[in-house]
Simulated scan of single mutants.
Amino acid sequence: MKTTIIPFESKYAKDFAYLNIEWLEKYFTVEPHDADLLEQCEETIINEGGYIFFAKADTEIAGTFSLIKMKDGIYELGKMAVSPKFQGQKIGQQLLQFCIEFSKGQNWEKLILYSNRILENAIYIYSKYGFKEIPMEENPPYQRSNIKMELVLQNRKSSINIDSV
Rank of each mutant, 00 (worst) to 15 (best):
G73R: 10
M149A: 04
G63S: 10
L67H: 08
R156Q: 12
K56L: 11
K110N: 10
F53M: 05
M70L: 15
I125F: 06
G88K: 11
Q40S: 14
I112Y: 02
K85V: 14
E150K: 10
E25H: 05
T44G: 00
Y18V: 08
R117C: 02
Y114A: 04
K132W: 00
N116L: 01
Y114T: 03
K79R: 14
S115T: 15
I74P: 00
V30M: 05
E48Y: 01
I91F: 11
M80I: 15
Q87Y: 05
Q97M: 09
E137G: 12
E101Q: 13
Q94S: 12
N146Y: 01
D36W: 02
P84M: 12
W108A: 04
P32M: 05
I91Y: 10
D34H: 15
E133P: 01
Q106T: 03
G49E: 04
A57H: 11
T29A: 10
I52N: 08
I134Q: 03
I91R: 02
P140F: 00
A81S: 15
W108E: 03
W108P: 09
W108D: 10
G130D: 11
N47H: 08
L24E: 05
L113T: 15
L96V: 05
Y27Q: 05
M80F: 02
K104H: 03
Q94T: 09
I125V: 15
K79W: 13
K110P: 06
I112T: 06
T59D: 15
M149I: 01
E150F: 00
S66E: 07
Q40E: 12
I74K: 12
E120R: 06
S145N: 01
A81D: 04
L37E: 13
L24A: 14
K71W: 13
E22H: 09
L24K: 08
I134N: 02
L37H: 11
D72N: 14
K79P: 01
L77R: 09
Q40C: 04
K69C: 10
K110A: 11
E43M: 11
D34E: 09
V30Q: 02
I91L: 10
L153I: 06
Q106S: 02
E22N: 14
N47A: 13
E43I: 10
V152A: 06
A57G: 00
P141I: 05
P135Y: 03
